[in-house]
Amino acid sequence: MSISTETCIERKEIMKGHVLHVTVDKVSIDDGQGGAQTTSTREVVWHNGACAIVPVTDDGKIILVRQYRYAAALAMLEVPAGKIEHDGESPDLCAARELEEETGFKAGDMKFLGFVYTSPGFCNERIYLYLATNLQKGEQHLDEDEFMNLEYYTPEEVEDLIDSNEIVDAKTIANFHKAMKYLAKH
């Protein structure tokens, strides 16, 4: 069996916001086998993307932030992260900015670890993952509607928090997993 491809043939804009854009697209589906083309409808959330960072202190602690997430109705423990401000902004610049804004630290070394899609069944959001080391004190400057606590954990404690479902944020779990092979070297 071949993998099909889909091409947008009609788009209806539902909502254009500051963070995301929602469309309902009519798509043409090619079954990849030379068969008849079919059509279907796709509801899509478009997003500029984001960056997430595993910051590691000189003594090997991982800095996490605890903040309330309205959509989940829960205070969540997460890696520092934030959205790419505009189409075309470099993920590297976004990661450096968000690290300092949320934690008050700058990274002497920032290693790109790859990226993940949050929910590719309906959203194009891509989160770029980083590991930040050789941290130097900068200045925390949260947005006026942003409130969070900084918490410090060993890698083993983070693993336990994931296993016990204290950490349930997908970007945090993915980013921590990608950083694991580097954390033992600290």
Score class of each variant (00 low, 15 high):
residue 66 R to V: 07
residue 67 Q to G: 07
residue 67 Q to L: 07
residue 67 Q to C: 04
residue 67 Q to Y: 10
residue 68 Y to D: 04
residue 70 Y to G: 08
residue 71 A to K: 04
residue 71 A to Q: 04
residue 71 A to V: 10
residue 71 A to W: 05
residue 71 A to T: 12
residue 72 A to S: 10
residue 73 A to I: 11
residue 74 L to S: 08
residue 75 A to D: 12
residue 76 M to G: 04
residue 76 M to K: 00
residue 78 E to M: 15
residue 78 E to H: 07
residue 78 E to V: 02
residue 79 V to I: 12
residue 79 V to F: 02
residue 80 P to L: 03
residue 80 P to C: 13
residue 80 P to H: 00
residue 80 P to R: 01
residue 81 A to D: 03
residue 81 A to T: 00
residue 82 G to P: 00
residue 82 G to L: 04
residue 83 K to L: 09
residue 84 I to C: 03
residue 84 I to P: 00
residue 84 I to Q: 00
residue 84 I to W: 02
residue 85 E to T: 09
residue 87 D to P: 03
residue 87 D to H: 03
residue 87 D to K: 03
residue 88 G to H: 02
residue 89 E to A: 11
residue 89 E to V: 06
residue 89 E to L: 14
residue 89 E to P: 01
residue 90 S to A: 14
residue 90 S to L: 08
residue 91 P to Q: 07
residue 91 P to M: 09
residue 91 P to I: 06
residue 91 P to G: 10
residue 92 D to G: 11
residue 92 D to F: 15
residue 93 L to G: 12
residue 93 L to P: 01
residue 93 L to H: 14
residue 93 L to F: 11
residue 94 C to R: 01
residue 94 C to T: 13
residue 96 A to R: 04
residue 96 A to C: 09
residue 96 A to I: 05
residue 97 R to V: 05
residue 97 R to F: 13
residue 98 E to Y: 04
residue 98 E to T: 07
residue 99 L to M: 09
residue 99 L to D: 01
residue 100 E to G: 00
residue 101 E to S: 06
residue 101 E to F: 12
residue 102 E to V: 05
residue 104 G to A: 13
residue 105 F to H: 01
residue 105 F to L: 02
residue 105 F to K: 02
residue 106 K to N: 10
residue 106 K to R: 14
residue 106 K to H: 12
residue 106 K to Y: 06
residue 107 A to T: 04
residue 107 A to L: 04
residue 107 A to Y: 01
residue 108 G to I: 05
residue 108 G to Q: 12
residue 109 D to L: 12
residue 109 D to V: 15
residue 109 D to Q: 15
residue 110 M to P: 02
residue 110 M to W: 05
residue 111 K to R: 15
residue 113 L to A: 10
residue 114 G to C: 09
residue 114 G to K: 11
residue 114 G to N: 14
residue 114 G to Q: 08
residue 115 F to A: 15
residue 115 F to Q: 07
residue 115 F to Y: 14
residue 116 V to F: 08
residue 117 Y to F: 13
residue 117 Y to K: 07
residue 117 Y to C: 10
residue 118 T to D: 06
residue 118 T to I: 15
residue 118 T to V: 12
residue 118 T to K: 05
residue 119 S to W: 05
residue 119 S to D: 14
residue 119 S to H: 10
residue 119 S to L: 08
residue 120 P to G: 03
residue 120 P to R: 13
residue 120 P to T: 06
residue 120 P to A: 11
residue 121 G to M: 02
residue 121 G to W: 08
residue 121 G to Q: 09
residue 121 G to Y: 09
residue 122 F to P: 00
residue 123 C to F: 09
residue 123 C to K: 05
residue 124 N to S: 11
residue 125 E to Y: 03
residue 126 R to Y: 04
residue 126 R to V: 08
residue 127 I to N: 01
residue 128 Y to R: 03
residue 128 Y to V: 04
residue 129 L to V: 08
residue 130 Y to A: 03
residue 130 Y to Q: 02
residue 130 Y to W: 09
residue 131 L to N: 00
residue 131 L to I: 14
residue 132 A to E: 02
residue 132 A to S: 10
residue 133 T to R: 01
residue 135 L to E: 01
residue 135 L to V: 05
residue 136 Q to L: 15
residue 137 K to T: 15
